[in-house]
């Protein structure tokens, strides 16, 4: 993962997979963005869990998402806390996935000040301990 010259690497805290979200983490380990979908009403569920808050269904199936999305909101963090301090400035964003959900993430491998709402981004899989977390980076030319 590249970073700008003046800043330290962005920390990548380990997730703690549980029985509800394990298929998500199995997917990211293979570089695939797996999402749960309600088997009753077909709603794509976020955050990953075995409950559909649209229809109260409790059965989900997992499918591979495109990994593409658009920035819905973004902030450049200048004053960070703890282990994040040396990494500032860095970008936190909501990315609206093509499949619908708006997910919290970082936008990486980019000059933070150039990141804009509406920009198209794609998923990047970043090692976090034994797992991989999903960050995003601008599409080439976006």
């Amino acid at each position: 993962m590249s970073t700008t010259a003046e800043t330290g690497p962005l920390p990548a805290p380990e997730p703690d997979p549980n029985t509800e979200d394990a298929p998500f983490w199995a997917g990211t380990a293979e570089g695939r963005l797996m999402l749960p979908r309600c088997t009753r009403c077909a709603t794509v569920i976020w955050y990953p869990r075995q409950f559909c808050s649209e229809c109260s269904g409790q059965d989900v199936e997992w499918f591979e998402a495109s990994g593409r999305g658009t920035i819905y909101a973004r902030t450049v963090v200048h004053r960070a806390q703890g282990p994040w301090r040396p990494a500032a400035p860095y970008v936190i964003a909501y990315v609206e996935l093509e499949e619908g959900p708006r997910v919290l993430t970082n936008i990486i491998e980019v000059d933070p000040d150039t990141v804009q709402v509406g920009q198209e981004v794609r998923a990047v899989f970043v090692a976090a301990g034994p797992h991989k977390i999903v960050r995003f980076t601008p599409e080439a030319g976006a």
């Binding site: 955050y47 902030t75 936190i92």
Partner: peptide, 17 residues
């Protein structure tokens, strides 16, 4: 698992979004 990885700086990060 889906909000703790991004370095959200206390309360201000969410309000900034």
């Amino acid at each position: 698992n889906f909000e703790g990885q991004w370095g959200i700086p206390g309360a201000v990060g969410g309000y900034a979004l």
